[in-house]
């Protein structure tokens, strides 16, 4: 049977991609952020997951406002990143796993969720950068990918509870998959930051700490706020924590915190990286 070994949660600031391209991992500005990935690298080397299920938000590469899905599940044989407007591309394509994608789609729809099904899907920096951070030396990707995009752009956004429940349904689908793959989930974006308006530069250390403290032991504490509450607390783009909430929902076992890094600032963002382990519940 398949196994969800853990979850990686991290920021996806575009500038991180530029720092990787320039090899700035040891630069004093960037080092405190990149160092947060050492435990992630050790863990991935040990666990060697076969499948990555990544919850992220598209920033206007694959989806535009003509048709904006609340939840979109990739079901392609492969995925690639393209130029998002800044002339940066060239990340390695990602192998897909359509049979698992369709299993997830079938199961979550059976549970009365209504995702958009995507047999072609470009993935943007919100997926590409966390993957580069987690597997920096991979000559070819050692995993197969199921990308799941959540709308954090066009209001109304799904509620945190809806995202958590959707993540739970994805988690149940993964648990019922008959393959013997080891799975890692990922939630990207955040933490607090705001790019637009007179409040640009907003950061909320207290709210971020609340989220990080509760992510492993009491994720439902994060559901007490509405998406608009989160915009007020964490900033317009801080609401990307919806991706973290969904990914955490997919982890249904006994969940423990393996590593945490929180550093301010990376670009305009309070940047965080967390790794949680998912253990099977002990049946007494």
């Amino acid at each position: 049977m398949s196994e969800i070994a853990g979850g990686i949660f991290t920021s996806h600031v575009p500038g991180i991609g530029q720092a990787i391209a320039k090899g700035l991992q040891q630069d004093p500005y960037w080092k405190p952020f990149f160092d947060g990935f050492h435990p992630v690298h050790e863990w991935l080397k040990r666990e060697k997951p076969d499948v990555l299920v990544c919850f992220y938000n598209d920033h206007g590469l694959n989806f535009f406002l003509d048709a904006m899905p609340t939840f979109a599940i990739g079901a392609a044989g492969s995925y690639r990143h393209e130029d998002e407007g800044w002339g940066i591309s060239g990340y390695k394509p990602y192998p897909g796993m359509p049979e698992l994608s369709w299993h997830i789609i079938n199961e979550v729809v059976r549970e009365e969720f209504d995702p958009t099904m995507c047999q072609k899907m470009l993935v943007d920096h919100a997926l590409a950068i966390p993957v580069e951070l987690a597997w920096p030396d991979a000559e070819s990707w050692p995993f197969k990918l199921v990308p799941i995009a959540i709308n954090t752009v066009q209001f109304p956004l799904p509620s945190p509870k809806r995202c958590f429940d959707f993540g739970r349904a994805v988690g149940r689908a993964l648990e019922s998959w008959e393959g013997d793959e080891k799975i890692v989930v990922m939630g990207t974006g955040g933490l607090s930051h705001q790019l637009e308006g007179q409040r640009a530069g907003h950061i909320n250390i207290e709210y971020d700490t609340f989220c990080m403290d509760n992510l492993s032991r009491d994720p439902e504490a994060l559901l007490q706020h509405s998406s608009l509450d989160i915009v007020e607390l964490a900033g317009s783009q801080g609401v990307e924590i919806l991706n973290w909430i969904a990914a955490r929902g997919a982890m249904r076992g006994s969940v423990t915190e393996y590593s945490r890094n929180y550093h301010i600032p990376i670009s305009n963002t309070a940047a965080a990286t967390m790794l949680l382990e998912n253990h099977e519940k002990v049946i007494a």
Partner: peptide, 24 residues
């Protein structure tokens, strides 16, 4: 200081956002 991008903003801004989307 915050611009919640709701349905009204999305309708008002369709053309400008459509143009920016083309800059990919």
């Amino acid at each position: 200081g915050t611009y919640v991008f709701d349905g009204d903003a999305a309708q008002r801004g369709f053309a400008i956002n459509d143009m920016c989307f083309s800059f990919n």
